[in-house]
Design a binder for these strands. Structure first.
Lengths: 333, 333
DNA sequence: GAATGATATGAAACCCATTACAATAACTGA
DNA sequence: TCAGTTATTGTAATGGGTTTCATATCATTC
């Protein structure tokens, strides 16, 4: 069952490979009407499908791009994958999805494989631990866009949330409600993952702007399975907080689970705001106030930035785009 | 900035391309220790990465597989993508993720592109409307596994949920609680999508097994945005149901949203069970009883079935594997 | 009827690896 | 020392397309 090749078509239609190739590339002006129809019929008859590998090898373009997410478990990652897939489908590209699992080794492996497979570009949520690799791509002028996280010194086009603002929106809201004792919980910040850092910075800055001194006991950065313990610590404090800012969707889940378990009433006993909107936020009891990331807008922007690099457009945009989050006011605060 | 090729390495190391190629394929017995080290050093020095396209063209294997999900919006789809990605990463494969959007045209386009790109196999949630295409893959002996849905007449290896059992578990649970008026809501069943059909069949069969006549007014198959209207219809019935079985996670969301909006108490006013577990099920108020699909197990099985086809193993398994769902008993019923 | 130009087609190089096999070099034992 | 191995390396074909450019064909014009 050997596949049909362009040579088979050429022989069968009694023309040369090159003419068939011209046909495949819709350069009909290079052949007569008769030849065109003959080739058309032959392709139909043999059910021929061109081998894109061979074409890509010559043309140096695979119409494939790689998407390396840091952790596919986050709702945000899947939203981004979905939106990017959608964008590139419209442009005739395929996406290869890779999950680095927050593991720099895995990330490295993926990036190297993607480049070896000659993808036309990569959108990556960088773990931050492969500086050399990033630099090499940069110096090779390989199309690349960072998402969600920035690597300061690199000058790579980046799309991320205005994380400081995200935290600030939440703090402002809490303060508006007369709450000053605000805790923040994020997942681990090994390797200086920028969003987590920035959210904590934004939190501190916002508190200061309201003249509230921040209490370091109110700041918890822990692994997911350590969240219940962290919450217990916070609640055992002499001055327990009146509000919690959950740093991402997974943290929010754990926080809500904890409140449920310990029968702590939201928002009376504790006010809650989560960064990242979650599907159930609008019908949970109470409904949950969240800070929504414009995932689709961010994805489209990242895709466009990548496309302009792929198309070697002049606009060498290497800036960091910070998109604005939205406060979705609901009942949990 | 032209890329380094095997020829560059060969010239630089003063050996032939073939020797370098042997080195790349770790066939060190074809060269002396000295040559091996020379090549090794040169590759290091030039930072050479082989072009996998060229290799794939010759070897007729791309170490890439396609995953075409019917609708990436379902939690189940993303769970499957995640698990399959994980499985294939372990085996040195990449996955290309495609979202058919429940659109047979898009599905067709994707399948043809994937084959043109010479992927080694495809895992697909078939829309069911591309019979010719499925048949052709089958007759080409192209590695393919169906997931979530079966196409009866085709004899393609398939992994899916035991949907009848899923519905039955739910009905049994309702009946156990003394509830007999049970409604079921699924999303649209144009094109005879098998899970939806089977879940309704299972629902009917389970009712009968309990000696309960089913009421066709209790069965709603509608688009997502029509769910509130469908619910209103059901609640306006003379004999309104005491329970609702939500056919998938998205339906469950809409049902819960409706109940919240109309202040209908779960489980007192209405008992609810959802097919597909959702992240918030265990801390919602009340916690939600769900029928959980073993997504990871199903994905691994599908991946293994595909791998055995790719490796041309003897075991020509073309059967339909129906995995058992689990009832996660919580408070909503 | 030859020169001209436009149209149509094919030959061959190329993309970058792999691989079968030929060629050379080094080494063995008699 | 020389045939006979064995170890090492190189040549060339191959995979399936694209692309450049030469050639063939044909109609047109003078």
């Amino acid at each position: 069952m050997k596949p049909i090749t362009i040579t088979d078509v050429a022989n069968h239609a009694k023309v040369s490979k090159s003419t068939v190739s011209q046909y495949l590339n819709k350069r009909y002006e290079y052949m007569s009407e008769k030849t065109r129809r003959k080739i058309e019929a032959t392709i139909e008859e043999l059910n021929y499908q061109p081998n894109i590998l061979a074409r890509s090898l010559k043309q140096k373009s695979t119409y494939t791009i790689g998407v390396v997410v840091a952790n596919i478990l986050h709702t945000f990652s899947t939203q981004v994958i979905r939106a990017i897939e959608n964008y590139f489908y419209e442009h005739g590209f395929h996406i290869i999805v890779c999950n680095a699992d927050d593991n720099p080794e895995k990330e490295k492996n993926y990036i190297e494989m993607l480049r070896a497979k000659q993808v036309d570009g990569i959108i990556i949520f960088p773990t931050g631990d492969n500086l050399d690799l990033y630099k090499r791509m940069k110096s090779d002028q390989f199309p690349i866009v960072f998402m969600d996280r920035t690597i300061e010194e690199l000058n790579v086009a980046t799309v991320m949330l205005d994380n400081q603002l995200a935290a600030q929106l939440a703090v402002d809201r809490f303060v508006e409600k007369g709450i000053e004792n605000i805790a923040i919980i994020t997942t681990s910040i090994i390797r200086d993952i920028s969003p987590r850092i920035e959210r904590i910075q934004g939190y501190k800055a916002a508190l200061l702007s309201h003249g509230i001194a921040f209490n370091s006991e109110y700041i918890k950065t822990v692994n997911i399975d350590e969240i219940p313990a962290a919450l217990s610590e916070i609640f055992d404090l002499e001055k327990r907080p009146q509000a919690i800012l959950a740093g991402n969707d997974i943290v929010l889940n754990e926080v809500l689970r904890y409140m449920k378990k310990h029968r702590i009433t939201i928002p009376d006993d504790i006010a809650i705001i989560g960064i990242d909107d979650v599907p159930y936020a609008s019908f949970y009891t109470p409904t949950i106030t969240t800070i929504d990331q414009p995932a689709i807008e961010m994805s489209n922007l990242a895709a466009e930035l990548l496309m302009s690099q792929i198309n070697k457009e002049e606009t060498k945009d290497t800036s960091v785009h910070r998109l604005k989050p939205t406060l979705l006011m609901r009942d949990s605060c």
